[in-house]
Design a protein around this nucleic acid. Structure first.
Lengths: 389, 389
DNA sequence: CTGTTAGCGCGTTCAA
DNA sequence: TTGAACGCGCTAACAG
């Protein structure tokens, strides 16, 4: 069973053992389209079995100039990103690709760089990266040309470095959070930001501000004073129960920096307390911490405070009361990403996949920044009449 | 800057560009120990720069018969396992190794098999696997000999397939959970099992049962009737406040199968309700769900129900009341694993690392199953006088 | 110090 | 169908 000293059996060993040529062995192993005798096949397979042969991927890849490997770089393995990785792995596997997943440990630029360098040295066929901590220039320099790069949840990447970006619509979701909080009776709304978090906080802030502005415009419009913007008014038409709003108190506070206690202090101070306070948090994790702090202070959720999170983590449903949050369309996102990348790699996509892709592209900014909507999942933490706690 | 059509520059191109030989280029790139003229080095480096050369890892690995790659297979990317992966990556990188992480998606045997096969085809230098879903025989057949395999959180692996196992002491922790709950005044204790979970549930069950038995023995011993086991008595000596226990109600119930509602129903039915009920859950996730259900029923935690989880997830601290749980010594575990593996790969370990390793080995069962203790983190959910809720 | 050369294990011709 | 031969890009001896 052993050939030499410690050497693993090669295709040549198998050929000798089976009494055929190396080419034949290769053909059998790779299930080529060349016609092969059933006898030959079984001879080879038996030899493979006897010798315990396993193909050497490095040699195969070197020879065929293709690694069938895709690289994924995410900030961490938890929650959304973890689900993302698992789903994407599944998707690309259907096309014969492997996915190597690396965490940049909270968007550490050095780690990002290192992982990316490794993937390129391994001649990965394609790269999928979270909006990176590295500068555009650095990234451009590293990835150069030749290796397709798809960005997800990253904004403003020039086309010469990333072919496309598939993003979640955090701005839209944030505006929706504001709208929903107001609709549920809040007259003061706050965004619990986390500016150091490895995610799209800026997009959330922008969307939050936008949402506030939009509602104010609508309120003003209802009073016949002026309007903010024709288009905005149109969208504000969705806001049905807040016609009487005169003034909305709103603010963006960095809970990451303040901590939940100081954050809540400021929130309570800024709001007039004559209506429930709405808090939209950067993530479910922050929402949970805030919820806990409310409990500790005897602030009733959702009666006095209404909470919205983001990510639909398992614990947001398991907490008490369950936290309203946004569902992340991980599957749609990974599917689109896989399609984009595989297309660039010259794979044959199914017609429906192509249709989906071109549809998504058509609605994208410049065809290069696809935006996927998030779905609000209303739960107890934002209910109107608080039965909960 | 471009050589041919689409070909990436090779070491040969660099050599030509720099006016030196391929071997010299290789020496410069790999920072060999051979002495090199500063002039030569700069010539090569400039050529590398000009051409945008990047070493081809596949060719290098093929030639050197070493991949510098370690493979890690975990059931999922979340929580403990995610932290584990990141930490291990960090550890092995110090020795020039890369870590490729794969999730088996909740211990799917097919995925495990596929990932393992891939890693072996890539000629990974070593494997680190969570106690696998695959049978021992299957694993033995796949991994064969030649590639060192270290198991973590897996029990009963024969030495011919895995060189060593580095496990967390779930049995010990579970016994400790029982002891602690009783000490905190509980007279009925339950283990909320999850038999389908991709983790060491059996070990927890065993430890729980052991813990109960131990305490009963101690109680009986206190009444001078008989004892369970000399050694057990000795250990039971740690239990200081429960000498008067006459009878402990205890049970193991599969919350994964029952769901939290039915589980709690049964718990309430089985216990006499004259003292707080202690519940030790398979994981923090289950503990949180149970906590939520308690809230919903108006059961006060920790006054009426005391809860212990496992994993020290972020949310267990952020929930209300904060959940008592066990801290996982991720760093110690990954460090030991890295040391074991690197030693087998012939790397030079630091003396202190070697000392640590041999010490851990000496206390291990047969020297091949290292057991790492978990630390209980007492929090509000098990406090004596319940201020919380 | 530097250059030459022979593999590493496999894929892919192209005649036979 | 098969077999021999070349190339993938690099490393490792050894020879200068």
């Amino acid at each position: 069973m052993n050939i030499g000293k410690n050497r693993k059996p090669t295709i040549g060993d198998v050929a000798r053992e089976a009494g055929v040529s190396m080419a034949t062995v290769s053909n059998v192993i790779n299930r080529r389209s060349v016609p092969l005798t059933a006898d030959t096949i079984s001879k080879v397979e038996q030899a493979v079995q006897r010798l315990g042969y396993r193909r050497n991927a490095m040699a195969a890849n070197l020879s065929s100039r293709k690694s069938n490997e895709l690289g994924l770089i995410i900030p961490n393995f938890g929650g959304y990103y973890g689900r993302f990785a698992e789903e994407l792995e599944h998707q690309v596997h259907g096309f014969g690709y492997h996915l190597s997943v690396f965490s940049s440990n909270g968007m550490n630029p050095d780690l990002e760089r290192r992982h990316m360098e490794l993937l390129l040295q391994r001649r990965a066929d394609g790269l999928i990266c979270h909006g990176l901590a590295m500068s555009v220039d650095t990234t451009r320099q590293i990835v150069g040309e030749g290796t397709p790069l798809v960005i997800f949840n990253g904004w403003g990447w020039p086309s010469d470095v990333a072919s496309i970006a598939v993003n979640l619509d955090f701005p839209g979701a944030s505006a929706e959070a504001v709208r929903y909080l107001l609709q549920q009776g809040c007259r003061s709304v706050f965004y619990a930001a986390d500016r150091l978090a490895p995610g799209a906080n800026a997009q959330r802030e922008q969307g939050f501000a936008e949402g506030v502005k939009r509602c104010e415009a609508r309120a003003v419009g209802a009073f016949g004073v002026s309007d903010y913007d024709g288009n905005q008014i149109e969208q504000a038409g969705q806001i049905d129960q807040i016609d009487q709003i005169e003034q909305i108190v709103s603010a963006i506070l960095d809970v990451g920096e303040l901590g939940v206690e100081l954050f809540l202090d400021q929130v309570l101070q800024l709001s007039d307390r004559r209506s429930p306070i709405g808090i939209y948090a950067y993530s479910d994790a922050w929402a949970l911490r805030l919820l806990s702090e409310c409990h500790a202070r005897g602030l009733r959720v959702p009666d006095e405070i209404k909470l919205i999170g983001m990510d639909n983590e398992l614990f947001s449903q398991a907490s008490y009361p369950a936290i309203t949050t946004f569902d992340m369309p991980v599957q749609r996102q990974t599917h689109l990403i896989a399609c984009c990348l595989l297309q660039q790699l010259g794979e044959e996509l199914a017609p429906e996949a192509l249709a989906l892709l071109s549809e998504a592209r058509s609605t994208a900014a410049g065809g290069r920044e696809i935006l996927l909507p998030l779905t609000l999942l209303p739960r107890r933490s934002t209910e109107l009449s608080g039965n909960a706690e």
